[in-house]
Design a binder for these strands. Structure first.
Length: 295
DNA sequence: CAAGGCTCCTGATAGC
DNA sequence: TGCTATCAGGAGCCTT
């Protein structure tokens, strides 16, 4: 499941392998991959053809390539990997992947052509071409304008996020997953952050102390920074890699997916609980559940 | 308006 | 063996 660190690894790969190239062709192989581009696949293709990829940016789990051409101005192609999306840089003629959804042919100034492919088994991901607009000092595609800064953003304002979190009447895990509060955190890093901060995900946010709220956000930033350090070192040149399995740092997870294994802090047994139609993992001793649950 | 639930999708795996 | 049920989950959209 690509969360912030995995998406950042992809962004860095794009900087290295595709920036500066010009779009030669666009093929959309599955309509769901462009369902958020309301003007349709042909329009998406038209908007990209002939344009040069000039930068690769990210906020939370969203990533975008800014495209520029002298006659039509500046836009961005926004990519969300969803659950299973991958971006791959491939040579022309490499066999199509089973779940190939979009193919771009990209030409550099020397005339060499490579392909950028979007491969996405579960089709939760997708592309949109969007205008850019200024939101609180950042140039963002319209699709991303409602997404909050992520904890690794230099302008992330922890005090403000803590205040907003404590004003809400919700549970802390829900708040961590709310991309309009702080972005980039998904189910895996939410559980890891809660484990580090020694908080149960069902704790009500309006009852957290400022210190507790700060601690869980700092923990999220720390665990994502560590994951990025581990994942960012091992991607293949042919592969603007991400596979959502977080393979290279999965072994360092303390809570997520660790049901029945001992907590590395206290030795108690990690438990799995159902939450929002998915799973939460926590240590029952380090992260005691709140006793009363009020609506 | 805020909060919470539903739904999209495919493949792996468990269970009978 | 082969079928069906369950699970994985990001985020837009709908309901309350």
């Amino acid at each position: 499941m690509p969360e912030l660190p995995e998406v950042e690894v992809v962004r860095r790969g794009l900087v290295e392998h595709v920036l500066g190239r010009v779009v030669d062709s666009v093929e959309v192989h599955h309509p769901r991959a462009v369902r958020r581009h309301l003007a349709g696949p042909e329009d998406l293709a038209t908007q990209l053809l002939g344009a040069r990829l000039v930068s690769a940016d990210r906020r939370g789990k969203y990533l975008w390539l800014q495209v520029d051409d002298t006659t039509r101005g500046t836009r961005a192609v926004v990519v969300h990997l969803g659950m299973s999306g991958q971006l791959r840089v491939q040579r022309v003629g490499a066999p199509d992947e089973k779940h190939l959804r979009i193919r771009l042919r990209l030409r550099n100034d020397a005339g060499a052509v490579t392909e950028l492919r979007f491969v996405d088994q579960r089709t939760f991901g997708g592309w949109v071409v969007d205008a850019l607009e200024l939101v609180e000092g950042s140039l963002l595609p319209r699709t991303v304008s409602h997404i909050a800064r992520d904890p690794l953003d230099v302008a992330f304002d922890a005090d403000r996020v803590v205040a907003a979190m404590r004003r809400k009447r919700t549970e802390v895990k829900r708040a961590l997953l709310d991309q309009t509060l702080a972005s980039g955190i998904g189910n895996i890093y939410a559980d890891e952050a809660l484990w580090r901060a020694q908080l149960h995900g069902r704790r009500p946010t309006d009852k957290l102390t400022r210190t507790q709220a700060h601690r869980v956000l700092e923990s999220a930033a720390a665990v994502m920074t560590e994951a990025l350090a581990a994942g960012g070192t091992s991607f293949d040149a042919l592969y603007v890699n991400v596979n959502g399995d977080s393979g290279y740092f999965a072994r360092s997870l303390a809570a997520y997916g660790q049901a029945d294994r001992p907590c590395s802090r206290c030795g108690d047994r990690i438990i799995r609980e159902s939450f929002m139609n998915r799973s939460s993992f926590s240590c029952p001793r380090c992260q005691p559940a709140p006793r009363a649950r009020k609506a």
